[in-house]
Amino acid sequence: MLQTFHGPQRLLSFFSQVKITVQLLGQARQLSPSDRVVLNVEDGSSVDEIVPVLLDGASDSLRMVLSEGTEALQLRRSVMAIHNDQTIEPATRDLLKDGDALSLLPPMSGG
């Protein structure tokens, strides 16, 4: 199932919006109603800037797994952000382009 959320930036910068598909893996996948979420975010957004949009309205358990920070949520350090088969730094801007896919992989330890 695919869901679309519109971030608050949309109202401010409609013409610089891009669509990013976020694929949730591992525990995040189990805690979310959708495996994939399409987000409208400001062009050039970093992963850390996408996380609050992604988690707007999300359950506390999903927030705990994916994010840290209180006033401004950002990607938890132990969660891998994967883009084009590479891990990327969550704070780096201008990596994600319109139509790109981003995967978020929380660590797993099951045996």
């Binding site: 893996l25 591992g26 525990q27 996948r29 189990q30 797994v65 938890r76 350090r77 132990s78 969660v79 891998m80 992989l105 929380p106 660590p107 797993m108 330890s109 099951g110 045996g111």
Partner: peptide, 27 residues
């Protein structure tokens, strides 16, 4: 592994990321 997913890597200390590079905290 977790549920229907799994992951695998081989760590050679000094040459590759170690587990703490990937997970610097207990999640």
């Amino acid at each position: 592994m977790f549920e229907m997913e799994g992951q695998l890597t081989t760590i050679i200390p000094g040459q590759t990321p170690c587990l703490a590079c990937l997970y610097p905290e207990v999640p």
